[in-house]
Design a protein around this nucleic acid. Sequence first.
DNA 1: GCAATAGTGTCTGTAAGACAATATCCA
DNA 2: TGGATATTGTCTTACAGACACTATTGC
Lengths: 303, 303
Amino acid sequence: MSENKIKNKQGMTEEQFLSIYDAGKYEKPSVTVDMLIFTVTKEEKKNYRKLSEKVLKLLLIKRGDHPFIGQWALPGGFVQMKESLDDAALRELKEETNIDHIYMEQLYTWGDVGRDPRTRVISVSYMSLVDSSTMDIRASDDADDAKWFSVSAKLYQEQKTVTEKGYVLQQLIKLNLSNEDDDLSALVKTVKTVEGKVTKVNREVVESNGIAADHAKIIAYGIERLRSKIKYTDIAFNLMPELFTLTELQQVYEVILDKELLKANFRRKTAEMVIETNEYTKDAGHRPSKLFRFNPNWINNME
Amino acid sequence: MSENKIKNKQGMTEEQFLSIYDAGKYEKPSVTVDMLIFTVTKEEKKNYRKLSEKVLKLLLIKRGDHPFIGQWALPGGFVQMKESLDDAALRELKEETNIDHIYMEQLYTWGDVGRDPRTRVISVSYMSLVDSSTMDIRASDDADDAKWFSVSAKLYQEQKTVTEKGYVLQQLIKLNLSNEDDDLSALVKTVKTVEGKVTKVNREVVESNGIAADHAKIIAYGIERLRSKIKYTDIAFNLMPELFTLTELQQVYEVILDKELLKANFRRKTAEMVIETNEYTKDAGHRPSKLFRFNPNWINNME
DNA sequence: GCAATAGTGTCTGTAAGACAATATCCA
DNA sequence: TGGATATTGTCTTACAGACACTATTGC
């Protein structure tokens, strides 16, 4: 493949061609990776008998310099010349959460021209799901101002306009990110245009309070993907500890989908995905429940 | 948002910071867009009574210069500083097929270090589906050596190894691309590692005959995505003309999924996606069939 | 009339949604 | 013992898969 002695129009072999190739000839954009790191944590119990509630959280970092100084951004950074995109994302994940063996998936690449005031920046976004119980607290440490925010994304307004050959569907998604100290929010507009056979989707940040750059729309997109994939894949188990009860698992689904599920049906659907153990929860203030683990041999017939 | 008078640790406002920001400080990768442009064409009828068969085709371009001189590559090119990724992809699509109002979707971003011998190249891949009947022949013109290849991707070998905490599934996909003059092929290895809760997928080109760079794996990935999305979205209609018969529609599904479907069931499933017209096919050598058009108001409850 | 495709009817098994009933721990 | 959760059962409806049957054209 590389033993190429063919000459091009200038009469050069590949070797000669490469030796004079000037990679710095054109101006180039910068490339970053941005990470959406999600986890689900338990909140305080309200009552010794009740179960603790679960909350979906996202890791954000406070920017200490321009641009967007003082605002919160997705962890991430420039891709080095000698590391692949995946490696760059893994490095970021390791640096921010000290976890290196966990689910990670490329989400989407954002490349609008005015995204960053410094220069043209193209950002490859990744989504990672981590189990809060095995996580090093490093990230929740104040040291470099990285903090977990509870997330919610709700449909705020929907508008459908029927046109000649189709319709335009405009949705406003209200994004809320908060913890003890900070309260961030954003409005993300999604416009779906259907005209004849052709469908186009456009996303735009309409309003952003405390969230850097266009990160609000990356977050909104990630949540959408998470909600969608949890229905037909096993990714939710990356948010679970080694052993868990079926109710805990259900709570994770509910907090991500933002809706309640019926217990009996949920158990039927997940039955093949888990393996029963002989262990039980204790001291729960009510009937103990059996602990399960993930079944790695689960076969997915949806994908 | 940009009216930021806050000063950073060096005492600079955002304005000052940006004025001295040097975008050329670090070495940067190059960024390209690569397009997978699919279409489905009719082949010759074998018999005046039989229907014409359909074939899935992909547009490739013959490289006229190093590297990979003489090999076939996906159309694409460097992203300009003043155009978004989508715009770059649209520009490529327009240049290659002269079509500008059609389905286009971002696929995946490929950024391994040794992808291109010239320099570090990160490639954002897009997939586009075009209706061959409305297409300008420009692309199939020999002028710049762009040609349609019929595509097939078949599972060639599958190997599952059970490990302690899961398994390793290795699949070899045989890719064949051909037209009257050229016959290209490649073997793409997909390794899925399941260990406990963590699943990783790795793709690699094992063998490539006449296909430039790592484009074989981009093609294999695109076909996989196409096969998957056709099941629960309306993207197939982008491959159809304005009016079509249900059998033609079914043929498109069959050629993409590479398997036969039952007529009655197919019609039930697509019933909501199409609108009946009063027109019929003629001179078919058998019973005429009703023509349909896409129903833009079809609501997808799978996505 | 016959080859070939167009179009419809129906049976079966499986899965999703809704709801009900029973079981078990522990302060 | 009662509050709370755990676990199982079952009815209904929807839909996917398989197969069979009828209809209509051109030559």
